[in-house]
Design a protein around this nucleic acid. Structure first.
Lengths: 225, 225
DNA sequence: ATTTTTCTTTATAAAATCTTTACAAATTTT
DNA sequence: AAAATTTGTAAAGATTTTATAAAGAAAAAT
């Protein structure tokens, strides 16, 4: 599972730094923007899982930025603000903010609210899939489809296929593959690998005499796609 | 559009009255419960669009009620509490609370947070019935039907089936299932799991030698559907 | 207090997967 | 082109994993 990405839009350097440290040490990937404009551009280029938005920005009102983001961004936006008046809170929530936290906020609470907001983003099918021609590998579900039909792989076969697919186009040496799948100590058991590559090919190649997906690099290893 | 229904679970009569008046004048239909137990029953009989839950209940801790509700209720639950300490807030949010508001709260803010929470309900995946071929699982009533006939499951069997069904199509590892159903500390008791999968199959599979619903992924875990 | 139900544990059978061997086929080197 | 090396395939044996029954323990219901 890769890290969830959070975009922070705040003009105060200390707050940015504090948030950056807190969030990164809690296993999030953090992006920083100083102005609303910059934030909108960053969000558009690389939509994060969640946005932390300060209301008091120098260029535009945070409320404006929120509205602008909400025209297309539909994941969570948590407002951070020194303003703790009802008007701002109500306005922000009604403009589509997921949550509103007054500064100074408490770290653990912020983190819990972030987890909660991200949890709610999680629609059932945001699975992690690798596609390659007629082969589709779903890492979360642990399924492999060929021409949209489910294929049954054993655990080791699946792990091997994922390793190859994750390194698509790259040659992986026998040593490397054996170390990754079977562990250190098995690095010379190249025969294991041959047998498993064989069964994999039978299952995912259309014509297993002319493999298109799992290609042999004689003397070196194998390459996917 | 009919009125959205809100269930209030709070033991303080003044608060109940205050909330009732506020919410009804804002076009919500209000249900009232004085104790956690009563609240759970009312929620089950007539699932509301949102639940306002007080943490300091006389019969059980509000945290317990929250957990109990969250085993099947997946619309919004907002916590109201006189406690404003981080521990309670974090615990509640991590147990699946949608939001947490400290008493005394401001009316307009509460209303805005309620609107926000209800707005988010509209998005998918708040279905309380899972259908899969000839099997129908009703999370609210805690019943399972096969070909429209009720099937009797024990509590553990039901929980296991729900866990699998909620993750339809995805492999769940032995470890994960054991942790979720039996709790941490049971993660190596894979034999429990085998026995329970066995009885579940006998009950819901048409031909339990060729299971269609609960599929074994040897060396990894099980998959539903 | 007794019966019934559910859960835990043990034993064993069955199935699936992995490892190993043997040899054929393909590729590279000489 | 022949020899040497590497790779692919099939199949047998070994091992691991899973399924099922059934008995004892614990919990719940009567």
């Amino acid at each position: 599972m890769s890290k969830a990405e959070i975009l922070i839009i705040d003009d105060e350097p200390q707050i940015r730094k504090l948030l950056e440290i807190t969030l990164e040490s809690n296993d999030f990937k953090v992006w920083l923007a100083e102005t609303g404009k910059e934030g909108v551009i960053m969000a558009a280029n690389h939509p994060p899982e969640l946005i932390l938005l300060d209301l008091g920005l120098p260029d535009k009102s945070g409320h404006e930025i929120l509205k602008e983001l909400r025209t297309w961004y539909n994941k969570s936006i948590i407002i951070l603000s020194v303003q703790n008046n009802e008007t701002d809170i109500v306005q922000a929530l009604d403009n589509g903010a997921t949550d509103y936290l007054a500064k100074p906020f408490r770290n653990a609470e912020l983190l819990a609210r972030i987890r909660s907001a991200i949890r709610r983003n999680q629609t059932p099918n945001n699975n992690n899939v690798i596609n390659c021609d007629d082969v589709e590998i779903d890492l979360t579900a642990r399924t492999v489809k060929k021409n949209n039909e489910l294929i049954k792989l054993t655990s080791t076969e699946f792990n091997l296929l994922v390793l190859l697919a994750k390194n698509e186009g790259r040659v992986l040496t026998h040593h490397f593959i054996l170390k990754e799948i079977w562990g250190v100590g098995y690095q010379t058991e190249t025969q294991y690998l041959r047998v498993f590559i064989g069964t994999l090919r039978k299952k995912i190649e259309t014509n297993h005499n002319q493999p298109k997906h799992i290609v042999t690099e004689s003397g070196v290893g194998y390459r996917f796609c």
